[in-house]
Design a protein around this nucleic acid. Sequence first.
DNA 1: TTGCGGGCAATACGTTTGTATAGACTCCTG
DNA 2: CAGGAGTCTATACAAACGTATTGCCCGCAA
Lengths: 189, 189
Amino acid sequence: MALFAEQGIKATTIRGIAEAAKVSPGLVQHHFGTKEELRQACDEYVLSYLREQITVGVTGHNLDKPEFIENVHRTAPPLMKYLGRALVDGSPAAAAMFDELVSVTEEHLAQGDRSEADHRARATVLTAMKLGITVLHEHVSRALGTDLYAPQGALRAGKAQLDLIRPDFLGRELFDQARTGLEKVEGQR
Amino acid sequence: MALFAEQGIKATTIRGIAEAAKVSPGLVQHHFGTKEELRQACDEYVLSYLREQITVGVTGHNLDKPEFIENVHRTAPPLMKYLGRALVDGSPAAAAMFDELVSVTEEHLAQGDRSEADHRARATVLTAMKLGITVLHEHVSRALGTDLYAPQGALRAGKAQLDLIRPDFLGRELFDQARTGLEKVEGQR
DNA sequence: TTGCGGGCAATACGTTTGTATAGACTCCTG
DNA sequence: CAGGAGTCTATACAAACGTATTGCCCGCAA
């Protein structure tokens, strides 16, 4: 997953994966069959995990719980990097996840604003912007001077996002929840 | 450029480029030397062009001129797609352009808001969000149901961005300029 | 003890890749 | 008209790649 995320799928070799895992190239093949099947296995693992975290966080109203945030910050980064690469490298599974996120966001927007605004476009752009930060995490980290996925970097980037985006579109509750969650994390340091 | 943008650098072959250009692989090598030098040539071409357009558009206050917008919409898309890929594929030149955009944005933000807000983080996130839409243009187009770089798609995405981002951060003048520019284009159809 | 299935490595094979080399053709110049 | 520089193709080659094949080793059930 790490190699796929950092180098892209085409640039990552079975031999490189085997070396990183300290096994023989044959073993990788023995367990996953082909390179394509290995990629699908990674897709499935990453996307099912992220789906679960999203469900727990958003649907379960845990966005302001420090232990949830801590847990996410510890486990999600490699998976987010993988998702970012998968979106650019043309993974069908990642594309499906993008579409899901857009749909969820669209419903959320339509719920909070019953006007005839272009909720589809807003949801799409909002999703792309949010994921764009993930896809460009390397550049964001460099410009920030801190790893985006280190506590400091995530905090600064998170607050900046809340500053930049009109609160209405996150929904007041979600917005306040995210804000107080960030502040709690900040208070711990 | 198109092949690099669509497939990434590693997945694009000299032979594929030659075929698309209807020449022999040897000729590509004759003109550009190695694949790496060809990539650098693409980088240089794309970035110098985009730099020029940014200068003309922002510094020259042409953002609301329909002929400027039309011209950009006709020429920029392939270059934007290339830039998006280059950012993900680790091009040093693209990384430098990202940093420039962050710096320009940061100065812009600091000029309009003299408080002690984290302008660096805001500029970084704003830049990443804007470029993120470019990087994820394929998914944005699919979710929109229209090519992001077709007139309709660009219009919807542009308006959605203006809706989503707090106007203060674009600067009132820039914001109004962009909005009236979009409306003029809309009125033409 | 025997047999056997799964985890694992070593080797081999055909393909693709970047690149080097050599030659053909065109066009301009002296 | 001779010739040389530049454009372009064809061929060749070594390296890297994905993958197939083979066999070793260990644990476990009969």
